[in-house]
Design a protein around this nucleic acid. Structure first.
Lengths: 214, 214
DNA sequence: ATTTGCATTAACAATTCTGTTAAACAATAT
DNA sequence: ATATTGTTTAACAGAATTGTTAATGCAAAT
């Protein structure tokens, strides 16, 4: 009796979650247009009618994935804030590294988000405001810190928004273009782990040198 | 008589080219899966049967666009080489700026290429080798120059491949993520021209500082 | 045991999209 | 004038894809 209940409720969750998992994979790699509901259902081990039973339409299923991915995206930006108790250079080291690690764990995310924003901007007004306020927080949280260090003559004064764009560029592009660069770079990228670590150090070095005083 | 001939041949070229132009736009923004042959035909002002008459299939039409875009991509990489007669710092300024300008004129290109490589890698083995040899050239063309300057103590010695990735990251990401960042950055990006110019200067500054000696 | 409610399936319907074809058309060469 | 060649259109065919539905199964509650 007990066992039966547990099994039932597990199965129920599993089927729906199985579909979500398969959908995430399919949408992230192929995008909305390239994804096939039948292919998602197959990957989840159910008939495609089940997909419609749980999520009604392809679009609603897609929205569930988008919602979750935008949330992850916001978190990754917050990571850049680093540890506010540390001196600015250390703080940036931590922040850039944490952001890098975050992207490393969600390497398909940036391409997905950018593609969606480009192909249907109007759809994302709501989700967007959330990200917008996160960016504001990161900006406010860092600019004052940098200004203070610059006033003390420790670093060069820079616009944090420009610095943020540079950080995101360096960290995100590494993974965005990985499949493109990998066959072009020979030994440098032969060992993925090694290359990723080297890239992380390089990005941190690049940003820190950017704010160095001459 | 003359006039008739000229008009005819003009029209002929124009129809086919009109389709190519519309196809480029459609494929670049929506990708292969999102593009519709009927929509391309409509944008070109012809029935969609014409599209099949000239290009047989959607895939063959697509291949024509891909071919041309990979070629543009290769050119943009060559631009990084800059002017080899200049001293290294000046040379890099020119190279990074030229690459930036190239991307600025083809802002949709990187997203298109990356998406294609990710979604069907096997298709691009041939085109890829071309890009690969271009990268080798750029690498060889710059590393020796940098090593010499480093030996003279003018700059810090760096791995050019890492530097190339950083340059591409900074330059390409600016346009790749533009639609994503634009609503998030307020006044900084309110004026596109202004922002683009500022970004170009920032990217050059970032790379040059990276190779500065401490 | 029967009912109730959700889960599941298979078959089908509707639409959209790519690609074809046969006929009409236009310009040129003979 | 007529034949020839390439261009264009409209109508259609086939396939793929999303979404629906009616019937069935199955566990739990009464």
């Amino acid at each position: 009796m007990f066992i039966a209940i547990i099994m039932k409720s597990n199965d129920k969750q599993t089927k729906e979650q199985e579909i979500l998992k398969a959908a995430e994979q399919e949408f992230l790699t192929k995008g909305y247009d390239g994804a096939r509901t039948t292919s998602i259902a197959q990957a989840a081990g159910v008939t495609h009618a089940m997909l419609h039973y749980y999520f009604r339409t392809k679009e609603q299923l897609f929205d569930r994935i988008v919602e979750s991915k935008f949330s992850t995206m916001s978190q990754s930006l917050i990571a850049i804030l680093g540890d506010p108790t540390l001196p600015i250079v250390e703080r940036l080291k931590v922040g850039i590294g944490a952001h890098f690690d975050f992207v490393a764990e969600n390497p398909q995310l940036p391409r997905f988000v950018i593609n969606e924003i480009v192909s249907r901007p109007e759809r994302y007004d709501v989700l967007y405001k959330r990200v917008g306020s996160v960016v504001d927080n990161v900006y406010n949280g860092l600019q004052a810190d940098i200004d203070r260090a610059a006033a003390r003559g420790e670093i060069e004064r820079v616009d944090v928004r420009m610095l943020l764009i540079s950080i995101m560029s360096l960290n995100i592009f590494t993974f965005l273009a990985y499949p493109f660069m990998e066959p072009l770079m020979g030994e440098l990228m032969a060992n993925r782990e090694r290359f990723i670590e080297a890239r992380k150090a390089e990005n941190i070095a690049t940003i820190l040198k950017r704010i160095e005083k001459r």
